[in-house]
């Protein structure tokens, strides 16, 4: 019980600090000029780090989903030709953006927390503050803008990978013709918007949470390790909770 309360306390403290960092990021976004070169560098980093990872994981996810749906359809109707149509909306509004978000939280979130965290424990962040460069403005803001730009792009790539892998698996396992598979009848414009909105939101939230975890690192290499772990867990959890919130709102709007 004590451990649980302790954990709750930690969660509240982390969330409050992340909110502060988020608020300051928005403040500096409005008040201070944006270093475009830094944003591009970070955007390249984000993309370069995660593109292969996202393609791989989302590809497998597409394959898994189509297998599951196909087996189920075979059992129920004895026909799996509609797997493509059935999985497409789900991939667009749920799995595409959210699993991409989880993967970016894992890949990029840990990276941000490790970078910022090691700068904190080696006093480089103090040196920034002494040099007239507020850490949130200098470190978090470019990563924030870069992630907002890159996450939708990565989600689109992820959905594509999932689509292609699903097509291949459906052909291999259920002999579904690729032309039959590419069936977008069940997809609505709303699904695409929901997916993009999710991707954008994750793009905004992941760098803030990871940056906050890095900035709150204390004490040597162990502190950096803890900050990194906290970044993955907090950012992944935020992605899951936000998926529910946005998905729930979209659901209520739809029905």
């Amino acid at each position: 019980m004590r451990a649980l309360l302790d954990l709750l306390g930690h969660a509240i403290r982390d969330a409050r600090f992340a909110l502060t960092v988020g608020g300051r990021t928005v403040y500096y976004l409005a008040r201070a000029p944006l270093d475009r070169a830094a944003v591009w560098r970070q955007a390249f980093e984000v993309g370069n780090r995660s593109v292969l990872f996202v393609l791989l994981t989302l590809g497998f996810l597409g394959a898994i989903m189509n297998l599951q749906t196909g087996f189920q359809a075979l059992r129920l109707f004895g026909d799996a030709s509609l797997v493509g149509a059935q999985t497409m909306p789900l991939v667009l509004r749920l799995f595409g953006p959210t699993v991409t978000g989880l993967m970016v939280a894992t890949r990029v979130g840990t990276g941000i927390a490790a970078e910022v965290g090691s700068m904190v424990v080696t006093e480089q962040v103090d040196a920034l503050r002494m040099s007239g460069a507020p850490p949130v403005d200098y470190l978090v803001k470019p990563r924030f803008v870069a992630c907002i730009l890159m996450l939708p792009a990565l989600a689109v790539l992820g959905v594509t990978a999932s689509f292609v892998a699903g097509m291949a698996v459906s052909y291999g396992a259920f002999q579904v013709n690729p032309a039959t598979y590419a069936n977008f009848d069940l997809v609505r414009t709303g699904d695409v918007f929901e997916g993009l909105l999710k991707a954008l939101t994750y793009g905004a939230v992941i760098p803030i949470i990871a940056g906050a975890a890095g900035l709150s690192a204390r004490g040597g290499s162990e502190g950096v390790g803890q900050a990194t772990t906290r970044a993955v867990v907090n950012a992944s959890l935020a992605v899951i909770v936000l998926d529910f919130v946005i998905g729930g709102a979209a659901f209520v709007l739809r029905t």
Binding site: M119, T122, E123, Q124, D126, A127, L128, M130, S131, Y138
Partner: peptide, 24 residues
């Protein structure tokens, strides 16, 4: 301020490090 453990920005060159406070 001269920091105990240098606190040099490890991703910037020496020149960029020294110029940093002025550029900023």
């Amino acid at each position: 301020m001269i920091f105990q453990n240098y606190a040099l920005f490890d991703y910037l060159t020496v020149g960029e490090n020294i110029a940093f406070p002025l550029r900023q």
